[in-house]
């Protein structure tokens, strides 16, 4: 991914900073500039998520895209954050440890790198909550 495109989202990627609509009180991650529920009546502000959630569904990736192929097999899941929204992220755990409904917490990891001489993309993954 082009550096500016990654860089722009560093607050969201590192610290789960999303948005909240003050009109309907709904939280969104990743951040949105328009509230999908209130649309023009929405009032958007930044919102930091706690990073605690639950596994909605998951898979174990055996055949990965470039930049992720050294990590296989890895667990990928949709996580419902306690504040409401769902996000896609890797879960750092044994593939046979993962299950639907598992409580997870955010951790800081290397997500991908653009080859050995490119920029390293850091961000949020999850681990079983301790």
């Amino acid at each position: 991914m082009a550096v500016p495109r990654f860089w722009r989202n560093i607050p969201a990627r590192y610290n789960l900073i999303g948005t909240k609509c003050l009109t309907c009180e709904k939280c969104y991650f990743p951040p949105r500039t328009t509230c999908p529920a209130c649309r023009r009546a929405g009032k958007i502000e930044m919102h930091k998520f706690e990073g605690i959630g639950e596994v909605v569904t998951y898979t174990v990736i055996h055949s990965a895209s470039e930049g992720f192929d050294r990590q296989t097999p890895y667990v990928l899941a949709i996580i419902r954050l306690d504040e409401g929204p769902c996000m896609t992220a890797q879960i750092v755990c044994d593939p046979n440890e993962i299950e639907i409904g598992m409580k997870v917490q955010s951790i800081f990891r290397k997500i991908a790198e653009e080859g050995p001489d490119g920029v390293i993309c850091y961000g949020t993954k999850f681990a079983p909550k301790r």
Binding site: Q71, F108, R109, K110, I111, Y122, K125
Partner: peptide, 13 residues
């Protein structure tokens, strides 16, 4: 370290 850990991720944690 795990495969996705380096000095930066360890420093952050």
């Amino acid at each position: 370290p795990d495969m996705d850990e380096d000095t930066a991720t360890i420093a952050v944690e």
